[in-house]
Computed example of a mutant assay.
Amino acid sequence: MVIFAYLCGSLSGAMIVSQLMHLPNPREHGSHNPGATNMLRVGGVLAGLLVLVFDILKGMIPVWLAYRMGISPFFLGIIAIAACLGHIYPCFFHFQGGKGVATAFGSMAAIGWDFAGVFSLTWLLALFISGYSSVGAIISFILAPLYVWFFKPELTMPVAMLSCLILARHSSNIQRLFRGQESKIWKKKR
């Protein structure tokens, strides 16, 4: 399941959607990140949504299958991390991937819709208040272990491990936020 999760994660939704829709290569435009936020900037709303759904599913499917097979919570966390590592370091795309936010969300959404709803609401609130996709991700993943503790406490440790991976991937975003150099998801017109 770990290998399957990594291979699922290695399928880049941004690269596949950009090729199917004849859009610019997301690794050469925008933030150069092959993720949903950059595809929103490069290809528009439809491209961004398609990549978001694709990246969520490639995290959700392996973890959900493992969960249905009765794999222990610790190894569910390892499988989720493998899917995210596939997204971050995809073997099919020269080990140059995205931040892993949507894939991590998909991995955790397999826990249950109650958790996924609270997590999504937190991300949307932080995004709309700040205007930064990275702030939404950072705040959501900081709070994710606390949220999962309320719904399924046995999965707190795997979610905490996954959150640490995503937060570490956002270290450059955190530095840009402190320097005032991070790009907002939408720009205000003057």
Rank of each mutant, 00 (worst) to 15 (best):
M39F: 08
M15P: 01
W186Q: 01
K188Y: 02
I139V: 15
G136Y: 00
Y6Q: 00
K152T: 09
S133A: 15
A116F: 04
I56C: 09
T122K: 05
F54P: 11
V17L: 09
Q19H: 13
P158G: 01
V118G: 06
P24M: 13
S140R: 00
I56N: 03
R190G: 14
N33Y: 06
T37V: 11
P90W: 11
M69Y: 10
L76I: 14
S133Q: 01
R179T: 08
P158S: 03
L124E: 06
N173Q: 07
L124Q: 02
A5Q: 03
I174L: 13
N173S: 10
I129Q: 04
F141T: 04
C8T: 10
I139G: 07
S107M: 01
S10I: 11
S133E: 04
G13K: 01
V51L: 11
A137M: 00
F128D: 12
G106N: 13
W123Q: 03
L124C: 12
H32D: 09
S12N: 12
N25A: 08
A14K: 09
V45E: 14
G106V: 11
L162E: 03
Q96H: 15
M21S: 05
F178K: 13
R169H: 03
L124M: 15
S31K: 14
L40D: 00
I88P: 01
I129C: 03
F119C: 07
F54N: 11
I185D: 05
P73A: 10
L7T: 07
G13M: 08
G97N: 01
R179H: 12
Q19D: 10
G43W: 14
G13T: 05
A109T: 11
L65P: 06
G44L: 12
G112A: 12
F74P: 03
S107Y: 04
T156C: 08
D55Y: 13
P90A: 00
W113L: 15
N33D: 05
V51G: 08
K187Y: 10
Y89T: 02
S107D: 03
G100S: 02
F151D: 00
G48L: 09
C91Q: 12
I3E: 10
F4R: 07
S120F: 12
K188G: 08
L85S: 05
L155A: 02
V2N: 04
P34R: 14
A109E: 07
G180V: 04
L23A: 03
A82R: 05
I3Y: 09
F54L: 13
F115P: 07
G131Q: 06
R41P: 04
I139E: 05
V17W: 14
A160F: 13
A160D: 04
I16G: 00
V2P: 01
I142P: 04
L155I: 07
I78C: 13
V51D: 10
L20W: 08
L85C: 12
H170D: 03
C91G: 08
A14W: 10
F54V: 13
S163I: 08
V42W: 09
E28M: 13
V53S: 09
F119K: 01
L65Y: 13
A137L: 02
G44C: 09
H170N: 02
